[in-house]
């Protein structure tokens, strides 16, 4: 063991580092899905928005030299895909789950197609806040390198919580999600509210993609998301459609991602498939613990996933 080595202290540090590094995509996608589902629509296609955001962010950062332009562009790409989804699900008798699957494949395929020339080049990366510079240990310095996007995400989570609880617009979105007919009777446009929510939600997923390609792991290739966008959509269910709980769930999933490699690095060698399956195992456990015999999903907006009926 050298002075640089941390031994078992590496485990909590890896969890902390993994949590700070790996939770951002989960956070943005689950907040986006939370907003979408609060308005009564489901967007399973956020994985597609994430991938398209990742490649758009990487390409714009590469060509413009500024990673922040990439992030904005990625958000824009997400908005555009969200607009398509929103328009399609506003049609009569259109099922939003099917459209979501189509959008996921469309977004992913488009990203892979557009991303071919960007696999090899290296784009400028997002800057990090160095919160660990008080320490002499490079490991601590590295673990406490925090992306500004994490702080923005945390701010969005709390703002969204307050927005749903205490603002007029938040109340309109909730009304649309709970009972579209009542909202309509009160004079609110159901279609316009849902369109706005779907687009902003997909825009957040696009930013999550930019985080993947411009910060951590910080590279574009076709396997960059490894299904994180899909997992984050499921996260919303066990966060009970609550933005603050989305934050906790995202931190939990981010933290478990670093666990498998970290345990191997200190000598817990076998069972790495089990450790790598930790996030999924955790999902199952939480689902079993929180399931209710009375109502299948507590907290779900009442009109969630209902397609627009015949006029």
């Amino acid at each position: 063991m050298t002075p640089d080595s941390l031994g078992w202290w590496g485990i909590p540090l890896a969890i902390l580092g993994g949590l700070l590094r790996g939770s951002v995509p989960f956070l943005f996608v689950s907040l986006g899905e939370c907003l979408t589902e609060k308005s009564g629509k489901i967007n399973l296609g956020l994985e597609g928005s994430l991938l398209l955001g990742a490649v758009t962010g990487y390409a714009l950062s590469y060509h413009s030299g500024s990673a922040w332009i990439g992030v904005i562009g990625a958000g824009g790409a997400g908005l555009a895909l969200g607009a398509i989804h929103a328009w399609l699900v506003q049609q009569r008798r259109v099922n939003d789950i099917s459209v979501g699957i189509a959008m996921m494949i469309f977004g992913g395929g488009l990203a892979n197609y557009l991303g071919k020339p960007y696999i090899q080049p290296t784009a400028p990366q997002l800057p990090a806040l160095h919160w660990g510079d008080w320490s002499d240990l490079p490991a601590v310095q590295s673990a406490l390198r925090v992306s500004p996007l994490l702080l923005i995400g945390i701010a969005i989570a709390f703002t969204m919580q307050w927005f749903f609880r205490a603002t007029r617009w938040g109340l309109i979105i909730r009304a649309v999600g709970e009972s579209p007919t009542a909202a309509k009777a009160m004079g609110f446009s159901v279609g316009r509210t849902q369109t706005a929510c779907i687009m902003v939600g997909a825009g957040l997923a696009g930013i999550a993609g930019a985080y993947l390609s411009l910060y951590f792991p910080g590279s574009w290739n076709e396997n960059i998301s490894s299904g994180q966008g899909l997992l984050a959509v499921a996260l919303v269910i066990f966060a009970r459609w609550n933005p603050r709980q989305c934050l906790y769930a995202a931190l939990l999933f981010g933290g478990t991602q670093g666990l498998g490699p970290a345990l191997q690095s200190v000598g817990v060698e076998g069972y790495y498939y089990v450790f790598n399956a930790m996030p999924y195992l955790l999902t199952l456990v939480i689902m079993v613990v929180t399931c209710s015999p009375v109502r299948s999903s507590v907290g779900a907006p009442a009109s969630l996933g209902q397609s627009r009926p015949d006029a």
């Binding site: 080595s5 590496g10 580092g17 993994g18 790996g22 792991p217 991602q257 490699p261 970290a262 790598n276």
Partner: peptide
Amino acid sequence: GEWSDPVKEAEAVNSMADQG
């Protein structure tokens, strides 16, 4: 455990760098 899993590969490098 995967032919390509960028997040895990990056975490693997980070945790090894932490160990010196």
